[in-house]
Nucleic acid binder design. Structure first.
Lengths: 344, 344
DNA sequence: TTTGGCATCGAAAACGTTTTCGATTTTGCG
DNA sequence: CGCAAAATCGAAAACGTTTTCGATGCCAAA
């Protein structure tokens, strides 16, 4: 019934708990013979060290926490998968929490993780997060932290991101090169760095290609849902009948837009061309297939964990950590929704 | 620097650690005055109990584990979300692991969770899981376990499922009532109870409606991918030119099929009608929109955690647990891919 | 004054492991 | 054979909390 402990093994072999522990951890000051004996009985009794005791003694949990805005989301679940896979390789388990894009929840969950004394925290910030004092709590507790995707530049920690601005620039440039003369932009909320950068990329692409920037062509979305894609497409068609291109902040919204354009009989890409962002799986199967920016979620998760792992190791060895920001490449994938008309 | 401990508070107030502990936990044998004092200093010092010590002492981790076949999957991430939300309400954190549909990995991950001494385990079985001795390990360790969605009937534990057979029956019946005369079935691998039940539902719907069951119309898929949907649609069209309906084990495959049929100029629903399974989000935005069985993932996660929570409580109170199987209702959602031709 | 009861507190053990440091035994070598 | 060095072991403290079981002091009742 009761789980086997070091003490049990010690009593069976008539030696001390100390020696059993050392034998199992391959200390040099225990003879080969006792090592063999200890290991054999540990094996047959199916001994598993009590994680609680180990945690207390070593004061590490071999567990990290991750907070993301939303679990049911293609990009974030890809990141999650990358993190979990990588963490498992290094013997770490990962606790998942979601902030639902709320600052309050995010704050509460940081507390939960710190109280659990996780060895490190991985986060992508909520849209509702405007100040970062709750992140300071992580830093003063000296828990390694790395931010990914939705980050805050001012926070002193490692980060892994994509170059949203450049990616948006390329997406917009592609629309221009496909012949668009009047390009709208569906952007995210005002605060997150992401939507700011994507907007800036859109804007600079226009300006650098001799097109004028018209603020009335920029629509500010809120929850970035399919429904918002539908809604703002209607608005767009009302406001600007002659628009012939849209760069949309995220694929889900773009798919809403496609759906609405299809319904209204607006031909894509002939009447209007669309480029999305993130390369959700469904973008490749919708009609027409959606051009988009491929955002390497799994890779981002992998890299984020690796950075965190390094910091955890460094902290253990008490060598000072240096924060790094790694930028992952993105890739414009061109599909039907933005191909130039054939010259006929 | 160092975290505050009970001892620190005790020394400041000149009382014993025992009293401090009891004061914080509102024991009756501590005077109101000392309780107030203790609480105040704990508050100002920002005392947080050391979770490691609490774990060791109480031998519970306030953590549960969940193993799912795949994180990047609409249904499973919905379940995950439901579990995490519900667990948080009850003060539990959740460790996420994924089996990649592999029995070996699943087994390994069970070990990881048991070694971490989680208070309970939630699982959906991998397709590759054929025997269940690794689950016995969970049971003999007396860790509460509840299986959801992809379960094994023989395992002695609580389960939460849908009635796959009934749902498949209804889907097939719907095709029949829409006028289909020759209905194929793309089924999952042979082992999982899910695909067996869905197949049985398909078969009995045929038989009970006076149609004959033709095994050559049943295609056995492997990884249930988009690509398999494409591939087996080609096979189907080669083998049976006159097929006019398909019931497909999961939406992703159905979407592959739709894509292939569209490409070959087969009209949906006029030439062939399709019903999928699971109600992935993208099924509502594809052209044509896909009829499917709505499978309540979030709800399933909620219910699964509630069952687990109850068992954890019961175990603590040493009252014997009774296993329950709860069946969640599904819902046939009819969309464009299966509507009957209009009589013109 | 004694007795009993109540309110309040603390010593100490326990959870199971890791690690330091000293003790003992064995070995090697002159 | 004697002695230093090496090899092998174990006692004990420590991690921070919870909880049992007494101990103490005080007051009221007898």
């Amino acid at each position: 019934m009761k789980p086997i402990t070091l003490k049990d093994i010690a009593e069976i072999l008539g030696i001390s708990v100390t020696t059993v522990s050392k034998a199992l951890k391959d200390y040099p000051d225990v003879s080969k013979k006792t090592k063999r004996l200890v290991r054999e009985t540990a094996e047959t009794l199916n001994y598993k060290p009590n994680a609680f005791a180990v945690n207390l003694r070593t004061s590490e949990s071999k567990t990290i926490g991750i907070i993301i805005p939303e679990v049911v989301h293609h990009f974030f679940s890809s990141v999650l998968k990358g993190i979990v896979a990588q963490a498992e390789k290094k013997g770490y388990l990962v606790i998942i929490l979601q902030s639902n894009e709320s600052y309050e929840l995010e704050k509460k969950q940081i507390d939960l993780l710190l109280n659990k004394r996780v060895d490190g925290i991985l986060m992508s910030l909520a849209n509702g997060t405007i100040h970062f004092d709750h992140l300071d709590e992580i830093l003063i507790s000296e828990t390694p932290l790395v931010l990914f995707d939705k980050i805050a530049k001012v926070v002193q920690c490692s980060k892994v991101i994509i170059n949203d601005r450049k990616a948006a620039y390329n997406a917009t440039k592609h629309l221009i090169e496909s012949g668009c003369k009047k390009i709208a932009h569906f952007r995210g909320p005002l605060l997150p760095q992401n939507s700011i950068d994507r907007f800036l990329g859109y804007k600079s692409a226009l300006l650098e290609h001799g097109m004028n920037y018209d603020p009335s062509l920029v629509y500010i979305l809120n929850d970035m849902s399919f429904e918002e894609g539908v809604h703002f497409s209607k608005e767009l068609l009302k406001d600007h009948k002659d628009v012939d291109g849209v760069f949309i902040n995220t694929d889900l919204v773009a798919i809403g837009a496609i759906s609405e354009f299809n319904k209204q009989g607006i031909a894509i890409p002939n009447d209007i061309k669309i480029v999305g962002f993130s390369n959700w799986f469904m973008s490749s199967v919708i009609t027409p297939t959606l051009s988009t920016i491929d955002q390497p979620g799994y890779e981002m998760g992998k890299v984020a964990f690796k950075l965190l792992y390094k910091e955890i190791k460094q902290k253990k060895k008490k060598i000072p950590v240096t924060f790094k920001t790694v930028e992952l490449p993105t890739n414009l994938v061109i599909r039907e929704s933005s191909i130039a008309e054939k010259i006929n």
